[in-house]
Design a protein around this nucleic acid. Structure first.
Length: 662
DNA sequence: AATCGTCTGCTTTTT
DNA sequence: GCAGACGATT
């Protein structure tokens, strides 16, 4: 055990890391070193002689999984850590289902649909199902179906309601396409474990120790999955913070962590309250805010870092003044203390709030990175290439097939496709295209084009299935042979655009050829659909001031944080007020505050442009919960008239002058 | 099939 | 105020 002093754990962390068997709940406040504890625990387990291959860590994001893996490697070395499994919920389910989907009537080569495929299919089904006077927004349907899959239906879906009918047809359709959406991955993995004892036993024996990260964000299905994997002797260690549960709207159940004892009786509970990130002034403000929530375990963060500088609450005249003051203050602060831009972050409730900030930053020529833009994935050419790849794995995937059927145009017209789709109803389009009956209804020229297309796909499918084949060169040849690159060029307005798109395709193919462990095209596609980071690495500039929503900021930290738009109706959001989820908004605010390491500035405007016109705004009721010792309130005008130091004054002045001259 | 114009409706988004 | 969707128009 003395070995574990090496990891520099405080007594509570040590208790958690060295817990033996049975359920363990670690209530880890923001910045209390939960990743350190989880990884130290993994290290400890292996040091106790437990086999690394029987330890499973589960996270929500690939980023968190990677991070965790790196940290274990740092602790016990590559050799000791390499057999520990660390996986996201979804990729774990994919692994289970690739092995057992046939037990549920799917094929094991099923495709995973992304959001846009899902929307497309739903739109089609709604159109087909709804009567003339009935209306159902595909986005709403998607949200409701997702919620139902993750939390269960109040009543089983029936044909009686439009939504029920759409749902049933949607599931049928997906099965016909041999495809699953993100929610199905969880739903079906749980189903296969629940209904097939031998599968459940297999996985229960495979892993002896389970460690679950961000437990407050788990939904009903995820809890059930954990439960099923744990089996009768639950060595389940979960880490989470009920005060940071901000995904209730996505089906996360705070009750999973609040009522942990109900799901896993007699757990050991460890509270981590020592924070290693922020000053006490910041933590006290956070504590004062969050204690206004009723349903919580209760904890009080403290830090050994001292009091630090005051938290500023700024009342601004309008959103413009807010943007100008925040940005110029960042510029001045950076200049005065010679800090990199990366030390600063601006946090906000809704994406559109970034706009005025971006404009001002651009004016001042301050570099910034905006988190949460469009992904690499949404690029047309990337979707095209992935659709080609998907069809080689699973030609029943209609959305992908439809995509490549017209890119490039190959003499199969819209009418033909429409007819074929009509015939395919509950099966796949590819099957219909291959059937000779279609010949009766189409011209011989079209028939020829269809046959050529099907042959093309079949040929390449065979090539791909040859052992020792190289997926990336096969895919490249397929794209060349089908004239994809010419079509891409033709469809681009400028040579520069076509060059860029071609480079994107090449980079994707390079990625594939360098894909480690050459586990095959199918796994590559899984990883790409399940991993958003992969795409973002390529698009984001990684330097500058960070602009980020409160949701996306969870888990991150910045030395200097500006939380803007602390107004009633924005934070808490109007909608949360009408839906009765103000507590979650308070947690969101709490998450924002606890991102700050050294300084925190919270601003609100008295007037803000909303939907084009200026509206007057009340300050957020949360602000009166935060004020107290160490919190300074001031107005924009005061700041501009009496800056802290002469140096700052000069900077402010120079910057404002520069801004006005632009 | 592509482009233009008008209408609508407006959080958050780990996978 | 503006993006995105949809329908009318060429």
């Amino acid at each position: 055990m003395s070995k574990f002093r090496m990891f520099d754990l405080n007594p509570e962390q040590q208790n958690a890391a060295t817990h033996g068997t049975g359920p363990l709940l670690i209530l880890a406040g923001a910045g209390t070193g939960k990743t350190r504890v989880i990884t130290a625990r993994m290290a400890w387990l292996t040091a106790q002689g437990h086999s690394a291959s029987r330890i499973l860590g589960v996270t929500f994001t690939n980023k968190a999984a990677k991070e965790m893996k790196n940290r274990v490697v740092d602790m016990i070395g590559t050799e000791g850590a390499k057999d520990i499994t660390i996986s996201t919920f979804h990729s774990l389910c994919v692994r289970i289902l690739r092995q057992s989907a046939h037990l549920l009537g799917y094929k094991d080569n099923f495709s995973i649909l992304d959001d846009s495929d899902q929307s497309g299919i739903l739109k089609k089904i709604i159109h087909r199902t709804a009567a003339k006077d009935e209306k159902l927004d595909p986005a709403v349907a998607r949200a409701l179906i997702s919620k139902a899959k993750n939390s269960g239906w109040n009543a089983p879906p029936t044909e009686a309601t439009l939504l029920g009918a759409v749902y049933l047809r949607y599931q049928d359709e997906l099965k016909g396409l041999n495809a699953m959406d993100f929610d199905d991955l969880l739903l079906l993995a749980v189903r296969v474990l629940r209904e097939h004892a031998e599968t459940a036993t297999h996985w229960q024996e495979r892993y002896e120790f389970l460690l679950v990260d961000e437990f407050q964000d788990t939904n009903r299905l995820q809890l059930e999955l954990v439960s099923l994997l744990a089996g009768k002797h639950p060595n389940v260690c979960v880490v989470g913070d009920d005060d940071q549960s901000i995904y209730g709207w996505r089906g996360a159940e705070v009750s999973n962590i609040l009522e942990f004892e109900r799901h896993f009786p007699n757990p050991v509970i460890v509270k981590l309250e020592q924070n290693y990130r922020s000053t006490n002034t910041i933590l006290n403000a956070a504590n004062r805010l969050i204690r206004n929530n009723v349903r919580r375990r209760g904890k009080n963060l403290w830090s050994a870092a001292g009091e630090g500088s005051p938290v500023h609450v700024l009342a601004m005249r309008d959103d413009r003044e807010e943007a100008e003051l925040v940005t110029s203050e960042i510029a001045a602060h950076r200049h005065a203390e010679q800090l990199p831009w990366e030390h600063f972050a601006i946090l906000y409730r809704t994406n559109q709030q970034s706009r005025p900030i971006e404009e001002t930053l651009r004016k001042l020529k301050i570099p910034y990175r905006l988190i949460g833009g469009k992904s690499f994935f949404d690029r047309r050419e990337i979707k095209d290439v992935l659709a080609y790849a998907t069809c080689l794995i699973n030609p029943s995937n209609d959305p992908s097939l439809l995509r490549i059927l017209r890119t490039p145009p190959r003499g199969i017209g819209a009418v033909t496709i429409e007819n074929a789709l009509e015939q395919s109803r509950n099966g796949s389009l590819f099957e219909v295209l291959r059937t000779p009956e279609l010949s009766d209804t189409v011209s011989s020229r079209t028939r020829q084009a269809i046959t050529a297309f099907c042959d093309l796909i079949e040929t390449y499918r065979i090539r791909l299935s040859t052992p020792s084949s190289d997926p990336s060169s096969i895919l490249r040849t397929l794209l060349e042979e089908s004239g994809y690159f010419e079509d891409l060029q033709r469809s681009c307005k400028t040579p520069a655009e076509s060059l860029r798109r071609e480079e994107n395709v090449r980079s994707l193919l390079r990625d594939l050829s360098e894909y480690k462990d050459h586990k095959g095209l199918s796994t590559f596609l899984d990883e790409i659909t399940l991993d958003n980071d992969r795409q973002e690495e390529q698009t984001e500039s990684s330097t500058g001031v960070t602009l980020i929503t409160l949701h996306a900021a969870k888990g991150l930290e910045f030395p200097h944080v500006y939380l803007i738009g602390a107004e009633d109706g924005l934070l808490p959001h109007q909608r949360s007020k009408s839906e009765g989820t103000v507590d979650e908004e308070r947690r969101l605010f709490y998450v924002g505050i606890t991102r700050a390491m050294k300084t925190l500035t919270i601003s609100h405007a008295l007037q803000r442009v909303k939907y084009g016109s200026p509206m007057s705004c009340q300050r957020s009721p949360f602000l009166s919960e935060i004020v107290g010792e160490g919190v300074l309130e001031s107005t924009g005008t005061e700041i501009l008239n009496q800056p802290a130091s002469e140096e700052m004054a000069a900077d402010h002045f120079a910057l404002l002058k520069q801004m006005l001259s632009n």
